[in-house]
Simulated scan of single mutants.
Amino acid sequence: MTIKIGIASNHLIHPTERFGTNFVDYIQRDYVTGLRHAGTLPLVLPLGDPKDAEDYIAGVDGLLLSGGQGVTPILYGEEPLAEVAETDIYRDQFEIALIKAAQKADKPVLGICRGMQVINVALGGNLYQDIYKQAGATEKHNQYPTSWEIPTHHVTTTDDSWLHQILGERFAVNSFHHQGIHEPGDNLKVVAKSDDQVVEGIESNDGRIIGVEFHPEMMRVVHPEFQRIFDYFAKLATENQ
């Protein structure tokens, strides 16, 4: 039976030179490719009303949440700092509803970068709005303009974690963020950190929700070991069939 993975879309909220005011929902191709190479059928879920989340989740075997804007601080009880930059509360609210619907249906969730952060907020945790100002980060966590597929700093995993199982104790990753997990949400544990103690991986106590702060979808072609993240997630999704 085909494993179907829903990918929550991002959407343009500003006019652009190419699209003008013809706003679009979209997902970067790399996420789709990673899921396809894991033997799954990716389905892009357009940004919608939170009340429709359970219907969307009913049609898939797992949920992937991608990168993008910062998560709106008011959703975890804080006033936004100047460093937050762009947020999109409509996307936040829809993805939070999807996460809760997936959890209710016992379907696995994979969060990548922002995706990991919004999982944490959905489950009652909070974020550092800026890891440099609030968490004392010292490494370069936004490597732009360095090419996306090039690893730029190391992470270390915990011994009993899913990341340790598939990628080992220590490895180098890329990085494109300035927010990060502060206090983990309910039933979430930190399973990887950078050398300056920024959270780089999470896992729920039951192992059904996983997340990474880096971008394996951008590295998997040049560094094929990162395809294992998508393969592992596909295996979690087969348990629903």
Rank of each mutant, 00 (worst) to 15 (best):
D186C: 13
I209H: 03
P184V: 12
S194N: 02
K193H: 12
L188I: 08
D206A: 04
N205S: 15
P184K: 12
G185S: 04
I181F: 07
G207N: 10
D206K: 03
S194E: 04
I210S: 06
V190E: 01
G180L: 15
V191G: 10
E183K: 09
V191K: 03
Q179R: 13
Q179A: 11
R208A: 13
V191S: 08
S194R: 03
S204D: 08
G211K: 09
L188K: 01
D195A: 15
A192I: 04
I181Y: 03
D186N: 10
I209K: 02
G201D: 00
R208D: 10
H177Y: 11
H177L: 08
G185W: 05
A192T: 01
V190S: 00
V191H: 09
V198P: 00
A192R: 00
G201L: 04
D206P: 12
Q179P: 08
F214A: 00
V198D: 01
G207W: 14
H178S: 09
V199H: 02
G185K: 04
Q179C: 11
S194A: 12
I210A: 11
S204T: 02
F214K: 01
D206E: 05
P184E: 06
S175I: 09
H177M: 07
G180C: 10
G201P: 00
E213Q: 15
D196L: 14
L188G: 04
K189R: 15
I209P: 00
H178Q: 12
I210K: 06
G185Q: 05
G201F: 04
V190C: 03
G201C: 02
I181T: 06
R208K: 15
D206G: 08
I209G: 02
K193I: 11
K189C: 14
D186K: 15
K189Y: 09
F214M: 05
Q197P: 00
F176L: 08
R208P: 14
F214C: 01
E200G: 07
E203R: 03
L188E: 07
G211C: 11
D196I: 15
V212K: 00
H178T: 07
E203S: 06
G207H: 12
N187V: 03
E183T: 14
E213R: 12
Q197N: 13
A192S: 03
V191N: 07
H177K: 07
G211M: 11
Q197E: 12
G207M: 13
I210L: 10
I202C: 07
G201T: 01
N187D: 09
L188F: 05
E213L: 15
H182A: 14
E213K: 12
G201I: 01
V199K: 03
F176R: 01
K189T: 13
D195W: 11
D186H: 14
I210V: 09
E200N: 05
D195G: 08
S175F: 08
D195F: 14
I210E: 03
S204R: 08
I209L: 07
A192M: 04
I210C: 06
I181D: 02
Q179L: 14
P184L: 13
H177F: 13
L188S: 05
E183P: 07
S204L: 09
I209W: 01
Q179H: 11
G211I: 09
V190G: 00
Q179F: 14
